[in-house]
């Protein structure tokens, strides 16, 4: 029998074409040479339509969360769409109190997208998943015509195991609870914005994108009465706190002087007329715990490499109207509202 020669993908200067999403040999080749290699695990290697996953331990429950990633630019200081699509989804699972186990991934590729970039993104995803001990067990690839996408969109779904006795929810905050955050605010949002607009600032504007499952585990250990964790992504801390206030029918009062904000983000916010409270983080954890557990929790956060700049930033108060407010540095008080529309810079 003749041996078949298949020309390898030109991963250096080739491009995605419509055949790569067509279900034929070209797609098989793309999956094999890019994704299977980057994500390498026994479920993917089997090449079946789905992954058969082992049962959870008795009493454990499955936590599932899904997230689509459309970030532009695709590569930015501190990460790329690949690592972000892993961190973003597995963080959603981790802040539920679950141990992240698996990811599934859907790619929507635009015709003409450089294969070298795709490989770079896939490898970044593979590394991020491996670092977090999570396997990308199944996936899908579609290609859309040029002009119908923006390079690549990635949707990931995360699965994790929640122990039998654990229950966290945005609805569990009670008056007297403490609000803590694991580090400086808005680094991701500002890094993206600066890159998109070609802005350069003194200091380091890098995305904080990181996997939070380790930090979440430390939080769970330090605070047995923990009410909830969140990762303040889109809409920033302001949106996350407003969600919690509404879910729990409580008010929240922040202390502006306690908010951790890096010099670079603070300066960029001044320049653009933005508020760090509205900017996304991708590697920060917000925790609400009973007031009495605030001190040990803060210590545990600060002892973790991802929580060195953790801070106690406010407290939950009784307020049926569900307002999030802030005691300002100046000595006044103001509301912290959701952001309306896109975070737009002021014009004068």
């Amino acid at each position: 029998m003749k041996s078949v020669y298949v020309r390898p993908l030109d991963l250096r200067s080739g491009h995605v074409d419509l055949a790569h999403g067509g279900g034929g040999r070209a797609m098989q080749q793309l999956i094999g040479e890019v994704f299977r290699r980057a994500f390498d695990n026994p479920w993917l290697v089997r090449g079946d339509d789905g992954a058969v996953l082992p049962a959870l331990a008795p009493g454990e429950r499955l936590v599932v969360s899904t997230d689509s990633h459309v970030v532009s630019p695709l590569f930015f200081p501190g990460g790329d769409i690949g690592s972000l699509s892993v961190h973003g989804t597995l963080n959603d699972v981790a802040v539920m109190g679950a141990r992240p186990l698996y990811l599934s991934v859907g790619f929507i590729l635009e015709e003409g997208f450089p294969l070298a970039d795709l490989l770079r993104i896939a490898e970044s995803m593979g590394r991020a998943a491996a670092d977090a001990g999570v396997a990308i067990v199944t996936g899908d690839t579609k290609v859309v015509e040029r002009g119908k996408g923006d390079g690549v969109f990635i949707t990931t779904t995360g699965m994790g195991a929640l122990p039998a006795d654990r229950e966290l929810s945005g609805a569990f905050a009670r008056p007297g609870d403490a609000v803590l955050v694991s580090g400086t605010l808005g680094e991701h949002g500002m890094a993206i914005m600066a890159q998109r607009e070609g802005l350069t600032f003194e200091g380091d504007l890098r995305s904080d994108s990181a996997a939070l499952h380790g930090l979440a585990a430390a939080v769970l250990e330090a605070s047995p009465g923990l009410r909830l964790m969140r990762d303040p992504t889109r809409g920033g801390l302001a949106a996350t706190l407003n969600e919690i206030a509404r879910q729990s029918t409580v008010g929240i009062v922040l202390e502006e002087s306690a908010l951790p904000v890096s010099q670079a983000v603070a300066a960029a916010c001044e320049f653009l007329g933005l508020d760090p409270l509205n900017l996304a983080s991708e590697g920060r954890l917000l925790a609400v715990c009973p007031g009495a557990e605030a001190a040990p929790l803060l210590a545990a956060l600060r002892a973790h490499p991802l929580g060195r700049q953790a801070a106690l930033i406010g407290e939950v108060v009784a307020d049926e109207r569900c307002f999030v407010q802030m005691q300002t540095m100046l000595g006044g008080r103001r509301m912290v509202d959701w952001l309306a529309g896109e975070p737009l810079p002021r014009i004068c």
């Binding site: 109207r321 569900c322 103001r334 509301m335």
Partner: peptide
């Protein structure tokens, strides 16, 4: 955000007894 109504809506309406978040 510089408009009188937007500024009061975003930063001040918690002062109104009738307002809700």
């Amino acid at each position: 955000s510089e408009g009188a109504c937007a500024a009061y809506y975003a930063y001040g309406r918690s002062r109104d007894p009738g307002a809700a978040a």
